[in-house]
Write a protein that binds this DNA or RNA. Structure first.
Lengths: 99, 99
DNA sequence: CATCATCGCTACACTTTTTGTAGCAAGCAC
DNA sequence: GTGCTTGCTACAAAAAGTGTAGCGATGATG
């Protein structure tokens, strides 16, 4: 298969390109939450997926477990989502013009 | 299956979350290019994938065909990539701290 | 004109990823 | 104890992605 380059940006894009990763980061940004709550916020995707993605994200130091079994963004995770925040405004404009 | 919300941000995240989409946008940002060149820049992924993703992106008005058969970012596409240009710096810092 | 290379792109069989459901073990409430 | 909810796993089916071969169109070369 096509191996990803070793450029940091591509390693990052590899993680972010997996399904549900962006959504999970986005939902966790609002506030930390439990496993089932996260699942609910993502539109009831399967627990398998939540669990896999959350593992990926923890491995990448973007998300971490809270002492009480929930999940929250790590410092890196927060920083990352901050970079993405302007995406919200963009999405609205983009969506408006696409009808 | 879990249906995506109708929030614009989620529609956008749906597209961006598909494999290779972020990478393709990123590679096209450098400069417009032909089909095969794009394929090469993405690490020789399959033509099937390039073609599907490029179709998705064109449908979403983020990429467009040039008169001479190549591809380039649309106005929206450029704007979108600009939003996450800072990702590059972030990726470097993040990658450095992950060793 | 014939040949050859290259292009965008498709067909298709194969592998990997994602999905959805069922449910287990652990914790708390009563 | 019984009953609830929690984080999370198992697993089979479905969907998405991969890799290779190659087609028709185009342009260059002889």
């Amino acid at each position: 298969m096509a191996t990803s380059s070793t450029r940091p940006i591509n390693q990052l894009l590899d993680i972010l390109g997996k399904k549900w990763v962006l959504r999970i980061l986005w939902e966790l940004h609002t506030e930390p939450c439990t496993f089932r709550e996260l699942q609910g916020r993502c539109g009831d995707i399967s627990p398998t997926m939540i669990n896999n993605r959350v593992k990926d994200l923890c491995a990448g130091n973007l998300v971490e477990k809270t002492p009480d079994q929930g999940y929250r963004l790590s410092t890196f995770g927060k920083e990352l989502v901050d970079v993405f925040m302007p995406l919200n405004d963009f999405a609205t404009r983009w969506s408006d013009s696409n009808r």
